[in-house]
Design a protein around this nucleic acid. Sequence first.
DNA 1: ACTAAGTTTTAAGGTTGATTTAATTTGTGT
DNA 2: ACACAAATTAAATCAACCTTAAAACTTAGT
Lengths: 220, 220
Amino acid sequence: MRILYVEDEKFLAEAVIHLLKKERINVDHAADGEEGLKLALKPNYDVIVLDIMLPKMSGLDILKTVRHRGIKTPIIMLSALNEVEDKVRGLDFGADDYLAKPFKSIELIARIKALVRRPALSEAKVLNFEDLKLNLTNRTLNGVELTDKEARIFEMLIKTPGSAITKEQILAYVWGSEVEFEENYVEVYISYLRKKLKSLKSKVEIKTIRNLGYKLCSKN
Amino acid sequence: MRILYVEDEKFLAEAVIHLLKKERINVDHAADGEEGLKLALKPNYDVIVLDIMLPKMSGLDILKTVRHRGIKTPIIMLSALNEVEDKVRGLDFGADDYLAKPFKSIELIARIKALVRRPALSEAKVLNFEDLKLNLTNRTLNGVELTDKEARIFEMLIKTPGSAITKEQILAYVWGSEVEFEENYVEVYISYLRKKLKSLKSKVEIKTIRNLGYKLCSKN
DNA sequence: ACTAAGTTTTAAGGTTGATTTAATTTGTGT
DNA sequence: ACACAAATTAAATCAACCTTAAAACTTAGT
């Protein structure tokens, strides 16, 4: 599990990070709002923890921007002021939980885990469309193995059957928004996926919509 | 046999530990709730004994957290108050037994032994997959001896034949929360397990799924 | 307490295969 | 037919993973 923790109080941050690591939670830390936002837009995190009062850009602004971009990662807000105001505003803007400072680390850990609740060891995450079955637990498409990037792109496609997704959306989700945008990345991987669909003799194909993006649909 | 005993009353704790040691039971002792939880999450104990009233974190909270993590170690709750309330709540949260204070040490010892004997009686701990038979009672894989860590990792793999498990999951289950995260531990042990599978000429192999984890599957 | 055997941790170097890069070819709409 | 978008391919790169061996622990036996 990997989380992003945006916190400017150096001493507190260090203590919390230490405890999170002991819990096997990987932590990226940002010490101000701008860096926090930059990292928050990467598609790497299971949970984002945002202090509200931050240099350069407030936690609430990060929250707003992230949600505005359509990123659904669970977010926990922290506030030094136990003000109902902040709490209400945070939850309004799409935060998932709220914790007043000072808090016990164990409390934060519990809330992080509550938000993630990963599926039990055995249950597989499977997505279906027509004759296709994408298994994200062992990263196979009808038995054929996919690489990390292939699987994430196909996950996007299969989650929105019918409607198209743009290359920008794919880049944002799979590569994160910090990368130099190279649309060719997407083209290369779409090509790999098509090759695999062909080898599966699937009835489904990835259709190009010029100047827009791609969508999954039945042949003919 | 190794147990964890979480108890803040120093004098009582010393007396009980002394008697347990006479019984050749190895005891780790924690004097407050936080330390208790930390130790309880290690996968080292045959039984955990939790006082309910503790500094920093109550025994009930430890119990809840431990069970929430899927740890099945038998747990005995101790309460200074002979309150039905506590008893009921403890058992609800997944405790295996309950003992009211004051208790006689011999009583505690009897209950610990009762709990340890239990699984041996009911379940023959054998897990199968293809041509492999993992015996957890004597820790052998088709007759070949495994070390503790090897056996625990292989147990995870064989319990989820279809799907992959991540290094994080393995670290959490086998090493518990105490270690600074070292993925190389897992890699080393996977390597040892592969060597043993090879020497068994098994049809089964451990497959790496890059950036995800490992799974067990038939060759070819 | 000392020794020996077995297990786990540490660390370094080697290998592999997914990803990136880049050049070329194919396709599409006007 | 033209211009531009998208597809394809193969080679280069780089991070993830593997292996090994030695050091550091543990445990049990004398």
